[in-house]
Design a binder for these strands. Structure first.
Lengths: 202, 202
DNA sequence: GTCTATAGCTGGATAGAC
DNA sequence: GTCTATCCAGCTATAGAC
């Protein structure tokens, strides 16, 4: 291959290292900290390599989002095929790990058109996948779709989970245990107690 | 008063104009667009006045947040003393106006300690006020606090509302109508149909 | 594929005239 | 209270040597 700009699918060691550095900077210090200078410093690589691999900072952000989103969509789809799809969805929604990055990217996307379009597309794919999996589960439990439409269940769970994470980030937790209990009571009424993978294995 | 730095309580015309410009820039282009140069350009004032009135950009952001939060807390407290507190809360939570600004400020607060502390304090005051007002309302309706703890109701409504606004901002609306209907069915079961102020007046 | 060097701009902040 | 002038740091991006 000639020494031309690499494609998105490419994942050389250098490219991955740059994305890793970008991810860490973004999570720890916010998107404003993700600059060519700081990427170079954090990865031990050269400033100019950012442009060699990504073209512009915009493309770097898109590549970073896409890498995380693809991994996450796959893993979530897997998790929702297990024996307790509602518990699995709830637990994944409440994970801080991949969520912090998402929050920064969404804020950043407010003024980056291309990134925004990418996030929109993936969000829809996530939602459709969740609706399919959870829809099957609710039907299997014999839930009345008039009383509990799958879309309402999924969006409400996602909304509460995201909101709790956002408030936790600014040390506001008033009412959180009660909200968690409300959701978990609903889940428990359909799937019983949460069975952790550790418990299943043991 | 001598020509020294003005206090937060002060609201000269120039100071207000700078805050107005900051607010507009932030809502329309994100917090990264709020710079001294652009504030000056947008308000027709001089760059250096930002430092005269606010000291640092950090203080400007805090002043901007505080101005909006104080207004908003007052107005919300008023709204929740009306005849339909749940409808009032829900409608206010779903308003886009003051919410866009909040989202930007919260993102910005990730790496601005002082701003974050300010947002934390106000968020708690909001929550406490909501719990007091909605708590009274639910008790008045004879709602079983074991089944529907006031904290769970308030946090869930806030979470769903905020999430819908965030997704709308990136053009994702899958399942939104169903989620809205789920919440509004609950409210309707307690307060009946929403009575708009227009309808009350007429 | 990785580096140095540099252009050209924009940022926060201050000094000091008026 | 408002302005000009200015400092210096940091930013994106490109050219071109190796």
């Amino acid at each position: 291959m000639a020494a031309t700009r690499r494609s998105t699918e490419d994942d050389s060691r250098t490219r991955s290292a740059l994305l890793d550095a970008a991810q860490q900077l973004m999570v720890e210090e916010g998107y404003a900290a993700v600059t060519t200078r700081r990427l170079a410093a954090a990865s031990g690589l050269n400033k100019a390599l950012v442009y060699y691999y990504f073209g512009t900072m915009d493309d770097l952000f898109i590549a970073l989002f896409r890498r995380g989103a693809e991994r996450s969509l796959e893993r979530e789809a897997d998790a929702l095929t297990g024996p307790q799809p509602l518990w699995a969805l709830w637990d994944r929604l409440r994970e801080r790990t991949s969520n912090e990055l998402t929050v920064e990217l969404v804020a950043l996307a407010n003024h980056r058109k291309a990134l925004r379009a990418e996030i929109t597309e993936f969000s829809r794919r996530f939602r459709e996948m969740q609706l399919a999996r959870i829809g099957e589960a609710l039907a299997g439990y014999g839930v009345d779709p008039e009383e509990w439409p799958v879309a309402a269940v999924v969006v409400t769970m996602a909304g509460v989970a995201r909101f709790l994470l956002m408030e936790e980030a600014i040390d506001v937790r008033i009412g959180h245990p009660q909200a968690v209990e409300l959701v978990e009571r609903f889940i428990r009424s359909l799937e019983g107690e949460r069975i952790t993978s550790a418990a299943r294995a043991g």
